[in-house]
Write a protein that binds this DNA or RNA. Structure first.
Length: 565
RNA sequence: GCGCCAGUAGCUCAGGUGGAUAGAGCAACUGCCUUCUAAGCAGUAGGUCAGGGGUUCGAAUCCCUUCUGGCGUACCA
């Protein structure tokens, strides 16, 4: 549970404050003027491992030039038993600290001790969090459009679990409403076309044109023949939906498992209707005076809660809108199931809804004052083939399915690629993806892992297994490459914390790519096989720590860590 | 019109809540395998951080404004 990067950083403030107090007792500085400074990690390590700007921050109030103030700090500071071996003044008055052997050794010991739990923290204090993601319409197979949300939601869940949250993954199945009716009518049309010929039956406007619908119709026909031919259309469609939905849901589950996503719960929209929960929730809003009727429809006074427009809850035809159902669904998440925080992973095409919806959820009558509803809005994926933009739509049936994509580029590459920063538009070039072999960064990272594994195995063959006792002498690991590698290893806990805080699991991609880069540099500069025994052992331990950390990071992203390549 | 997200190297993108000389991968060019995996390493070249103002010791980062692109603004979900 150690976060040594932060521990070292936080300790600097204490060291400086003690130095300040000493200067006060020497009467070189006035009392009570310890400056609020910031400690950061400089980009360029010639400026130290940490840089504090206290001398610059305090220059004005203490009426001393920054550099003079810095000199006082340096002369009074006591670094013995600290994480640092030196501090120097640089530039306009930065205090640059350099980490000590003590710190480097502690990093490696921590990784060995915590093992697979390394990187975890108690940041979340067990807060009960639900992450709802993918939630693709069950009217067809999942498409490449679901690939991004899938990875983001799943990786965010992993990151938050490691950061100490009690996380539940949920898939919301829209098995009711308009699109399901349309789904039934689409199958119906294909079924009737099978019997009467394609020309004889009109296909519904806005129907689902995909091959999968034809296949469902064919499957029904093969099982039951012309049994539905003389049936009332409504009843027929109901039968087809009853057949088609479970089939599609099972297929989605299968494809998601292949994509290494496992949901804790598949929540059916129909359950909210059947139990009367939607009705009850709308009644709640009605009784509280949050609604009004207009043109036979029931409207929510959403502008009262800060939204830019009101919303229809119940259409003039008597059916509830998705909006009413969504309110009921979220009330269920918080009230009935007791989640403290809910994170919905939605595409940017829903962001307008997210803003208005968040406003609605503040309605006092819903009783969610102490609850937290957040959205992870990810920008759209732009599909291109070379220079041509590819349109994706489930309705037109022209979408590339997730499963086909996985056939083409593999699960590892796909998960790594789609774990990109949520708020930037992502361009996905199919031509590039297909030949995305060695130029994909995922292989760079996996290669580092495989390299370590085979090295350790080869060394063990020669009787030089990684030592399991005797501790680590980090003072031997004193090249620039070794120090940079260890610092990156120390960074994992902090990266996970930040990824959880910012809902940005793509940080882990960048982190692990940099870790691999630092390992490759170390590997090229530091021989292990023919090093002195003590140095060899220390380096072997460093290799093992790196291997463990890469494996942890890749697991978070959902990518395998191969032992051979 | 209004709202949200973006605009950084030829291409795809980083840039840790204002810090020191703006980075990486790919593409281009040059070196490095009789020595632990060359799917690697080292190096060269490539920039008016969309434009313009402002805030301060200091701005890619914060504020204002203009331009460009994506998405939304349904009794669809």
């Amino acid at each position: 549970m150690a976060n040594l990067i932060e521990e070292a950083k936080l300790s600097i403030d204490g060291l400086l404050e003690k130095a300040y107090e000493k200067a006060v007792s020497n009467e070189t500085l006035p009392q009570g003027g310890f400056p609020q400074g910031k400690v950061e990690i400089p980009k360029d390590t010639t400026n130290g491992d940490y840089a504090a700007n206290h001398a610059m921050a305090g220059a004005k109030s203490l009426k001393l030039p920054p550099r003079t103030l810095a000199e006082i700090f340096v002369s009074e500071i006591d670094l013995s038993d600290s994480y640092f071996e030196s501090v120097e003044i640089a530039g306009p008055g930065f205090l640059n600290f350099r980490l000590s052997d003590n710190w480097y050794g502690k990093v490696l010991e921590t990784i060995l001790r915590e093992d697979e739990a390394y990187g975890c923290s108690d940041e979340g204090h067990g807060e009960k969090v639900m992450i709802e993601f993918v939630s693709a319409n069950p009217t067809g197979p999942m498409t490449i459009g679901n690939a991004r949300g899938g990875v983001l939601g799943d990786a965010l869940a992993s990151v938050m679990q490691r950061a100490g949250y009690n996380v539940s993954r949920e898939f919301y199945v829209n098995d009711a409403g308009n699109q399901v009716d349309l789904f039934g009518k689409s199958i119906e049309a294909r079924y009737l076309q099978l019997i009467k010929g394609e020309e004889a039956v009109d296909f519904p406007e806005n129907g689902y044109h995909g091959e999968d619908i034809k296949n469902l119709a064919k499957a029904i026909y093969e099982r039951d023949g012309e049994k539905y031919l003389d049936m009332d259309s409504d009843e027929r469609c109901r039968s087809f939906v009853e057949f088609g939905l479970p089939y599609n849901i099972a297929l989605m589950k299968q494809h998601l498992e292949r994509y290494r996503i496992h949901f804790d719960n598949w929540f059916l929209e129909s359950a909210l209707h059947n139990s009367g929960y939607v009705e009850e929730t709308v009644k709640l809003l009605e009784d509280a005076g949050c609604t009004y009727e207009k043109e036979d429809a029931l409207w929510l006074r959403n502008t009262d809660f800060g939204a830019d427009k009101d919303e229809v809850l119940r259409r003039s035809n008597g059916f509830y809108t998705y909006y009413a159902v969504d309110i009921a669904y979220h009330r269920n998440k918080f009230i009935e199931r007791g989640f403290d925080r809910v994170i919905d992973v939605w595409g940017a095409d829903h962001h307008g809804h997210a803003i208005r919806f968040a406003a609605s959820m503040t309605a006092p009558v819903l009783g969610l004052q102490n609850k937290k509803l957040d959205f992870l809005i990810m920008q759209m994926v732009r599909l291109v083939r070379g220079s041509e933009v590819v349109k994706v739509s489930k309705r037109t049936g022209k979408a590339l399915t997730l499963n086909d994509l996985l056939d083409e580029i593999g699960v590892d590459a796909c998960r790594f690629f789609f774990n990109a920063k949520p708020d930037t538009h992502l361009e996905f070039d199919l031509d590039l993806a297909i030949r995305q072999d060695s130029e994909n960064p995922v292989y760079y990272v996996q290669y580092a892992h495989a390299r370590i594994c085979s090295l350790i195995a080869a060394m063990a063959e020669e009787g030089h297994a990684v030592p399991t006792s005797g501790g680590v002498d980090a003072s031997l690991l004193n090249t620039e490459q070794e120090r940079e590698l260890i610092k990156q290893l120390a960074m994992l806990t902090e990266e996970i914390r930040l990824a959880a805080r910012d809902y940005d699991p793509s940080r882990i991609n960048r982190y692990v790519t940099e870790l691999a880069a630092r390992f490759h540099r170390f590997y090229n500069n530091c021989r292990i096989k023919d090093a002195e025994p003590k140095l060899r052992d220390a380096r072997l331990i460093l290799c093992e720590c790196t291997e463990k950390v890469i494996a942890i990071a890749l697991e978070i992203v959902g990518v395998t860590a191969p032992e051979k390549m």
